[in-house]
Design a protein around this nucleic acid. Structure first.
Lengths: 189, 189
DNA sequence: CCTCTGTAAACAAACGTTTGTTATGCTCCC
DNA sequence: GGGAGCATAACAAACGTTTGTTTACAGAGG
């Protein structure tokens, strides 16, 4: 009988929340996944909402770290964009449950936590905006690109990965990153 | 005292499901929105799951109709793509609640209904795939486009609209459709 | 009068959570 | 080295509330 840590419970929560949603998950469901009673979870956490906070926090840390790493590379805007795309894919593939919960369930956080997440998400998006703007300024990308909206398009493509990509499918993550970057830069032509 | 129809209840359900999710909505919540008791809803529908079916069905009908209309126009592949994009935006803007529920909550339908929705969604996606393939064949789009994945990219951008677009924002829907079509065809360059 | 839409009250089940207790180790001290 | 003492992690049972749903009944309109 191996005993459980708070971390084990957060991981299991992420999976449940990602699959069935926060409101679609009961403490007893979670207990079943972990092989303990639902009530026993309260020895590790103060309540259900704390688990959502923990899962979402994990994901937002990963995304933030990915953006920081892409910037730290210090190449031209197109290189940074490549790194941002590849990094986002890595987070989504390697931490699918947390990322999915972050994208779909953060809305159900309490006011203050939710505002904090929105802040982090906006900071992350700002890295995309700045990168594209730099690319427009130095002529890598066309003048007249609506930087704000283009960032949203790119993140839309990236975030949707969670809904269709399977690691053992036709494409591996490297092919996906390459193909996606090309689509973003060149479109269908 | 204006009396309610089944339709009124389905509309209210759509809004609630879109905002709080299927599991985050109770029959009493719904009753409050409608100004009646939660239990009174059972005079109109057989159960909560029936409401989800009705809302999702509405949305899928709208999407199917949009695709059919785009094809009926009968222009070249790029014209069809333009119409598909504009039509998708129209559905998402004019029927936001139903569309959002369709995109995010259909997973919680019972097995058979869920499979039916997946079928419809796949048919809809197939229209995008066919259109792009035609464009590749006649030279409108570049050879080497991964048609399957490109369709997913485009639908990813389209479906995410629900998460950020506000009808009274900086862009109206016509500008959005134009900008989005250009991004899809030309990318950042 | 009869159907339809609503209320009122209740149902069993499931919900998040609390409480009291037990089993299992770890650490310190004789 | 072996108890004593304590923290941890779990169970078992119950708490009060909310859930989806059912039943009995009232009023209003065609």
């Amino acid at each position: 009988m191996t005993r459980l840590t708070r971390d084990d419970i957060v991981v299991a929560s992420g999976k449940r929340f990602a699959t069935y949603g926060y409101h679609g998950t009961s403490m007893r469901d979670l207990g079943d996944d972990l092989g303990i009673l639902g009530s026993s979870i309260y020895a590790h956490v103060g309540g259900k909402h704390e688990l959502l906070v923990a899962v979402v926090e994990r994901a937002s840390d990963l995304f933030s770290a990915s953006a920081a790493a892409a910037i730290a590379l210090g190449g031209d805007p197109d290189d940074t964009l490549k790194a941002l795309v590849a990094g986002h894919i890595d987070v989504l593939v390697d931490h699918a449950a947390e990322a999915k919960t972050f994208l779909n369930e953060a809305w159900f956080l309490e006011e203050s936590d939710r505002l904090h997440v929105i802040q982090i998400r906006n900071d992350y998006e700002a890295v995309f905006r700045r990168t594209i703007q730099l690319g427009v300024d130095d002529g890598t990308f066309r003048r007249g690109v609506d930087v704000e909206v283009a960032s949203i398009y790119i993140l839309s493509i990236l975030n949707a990965i969670e809904r269709w990509f399977r690691p053992n499918g036709r494409l591996d993550r490297a092919e996906l990153a390459t193909d996606m970057h090309r689509f973003i830069v060149e479109g269908l032509t």
